[in-house]
Computed example of a mutant assay.
Amino acid sequence: MKVLILAIDRDNDFGVKAGVNGPVIGREKCLDAAVKLSLADPEDSDANTLFAAIKLYDELKRSGEFEDVEVALITGHPSVGVKSDLELSRQLEEVLKVFPADGVIPVTDGAEDEQIFPIISSKVPIISSRRVVVKQSPGIETTWYIIVRYLKELLSDPEASKVFVGIPGMIVLLFGLAKLISLRYPASTQIVSSVVTGFIMLLVGGYFFVKGFKLRPIQSIAKMISRGFITFIAGLTGLIVIGVGAIKVYLTIESIAESMIGGIPSNELIALLIYINALNFYFILGLGIIALGKIIQGYLRRNFHLWYYVTALLMLPGFWIVIDVVTRYANPFIKISTTEIATKVLLVGVDLVISILIGLKLKERIKNWAIRVPSL
């Protein structure tokens, strides 16, 4: 029986650090590769894995249990996953062409390399396996050195230091300030604690949300300002109008409900319908300001999509009517006649048709205009 002792380097440390390209076949070549990696990075466990494979090769050679024994190294790719596994599979086929083994003994340094065992077993039976665990000094000095070393590496990485040092430091700082304020004003202890806790949750949650979705809010705002200052101002103004309108409606919801249904809403859903109906004006007004800013910016920059922004602005009255009718119709305390509904639907249809026709007409004219006049 021919047995292959196979050392596996899934992330190709041999290639990246020592310039050794796989596959490597034969004891002398494997020994040379292991020495090269040990010199390049004495702390890399892959070198120990290959030394262990060579040691196992020597033991099996001396024992004479098998007809023939060979040792080889296959290397993957730094991008661990499909790419590295395809490379390992290709190199294993090359090894088997040189040494057609009847069985293989994989030698690895952890569970990551063992993930390719199904690929190996699909080509040649696995008769055993060996995992190499590098021994560490149990002394306190060595443990302390390792801890300090990894802490230094952690602090040298700006992103990691923000998460593991910056955020905990900010939390401790804010709670310390809250404690000092509560000593000065004992009656405000609960308020200060709630404010600080909420502020911490807002900052930490916002940070992880931005990082998790890979958002770049500061860069996006800067890009928006540099590309279209008028659009930015109009957008900010529109959002302020919507936000202020939302606050005003919330604070005056009872008086609005009195005028609409003649009393206080009986449940939250009815109150929500009244709130949306009252907010409708501010919402459409804010969108109109945003669209108007787009139109002005598009006109100054000779933007071909100017017709699209004009069409959107013209459609806003129709949207206002739809929201108004739907929220009033869904409210059981408001009676709305069929004639009024039909009239509103007709107005919406007319608004949409006019908006689309004007938009299509503008599209053709602006297309020629944008070609004749160079962009600013």
Rank of each mutant, 00 (worst) to 15 (best):
L279W: 12
G235M: 04
A33T: 09
V163P: 03
S89Y: 08
A160F: 08
L177S: 07
S38G: 13
G176V: 02
I295W: 03
F232D: 01
F304M: 13
N267E: 09
L6R: 11
L6T: 07
I147Q: 07
F304T: 08
L287F: 13
D85Y: 10
K17I: 06
A33S: 12
V241A: 11
L360H: 06
L154Y: 05
P118K: 07
A18P: 03
E43N: 13
G15M: 05
P186D: 08
I126F: 08
I284Y: 08
G212M: 07
R365L: 10
G286D: 08
V132Q: 15
F199Q: 01
K55N: 15
K214I: 06
G169S: 15
G318N: 04
F319Y: 15
F199D: 04
G206S: 05
L287W: 10
L269F: 14
M201Q: 04
R216Q: 13
K179P: 04
K123Q: 15
E65P: 03
G318H: 05
K83P: 01
L151K: 06
L357Y: 12
F164R: 04
G15I: 06
D32L: 10
S45Y: 11
A7N: 11
V95T: 09
F175T: 04
T75G: 11
G243A: 13
V132Y: 02
W307Q: 11
V249A: 05
K17S: 13
P317L: 06
K179Q: 15
R149F: 06
D41R: 06
F319G: 14
I105H: 04
I356G: 03
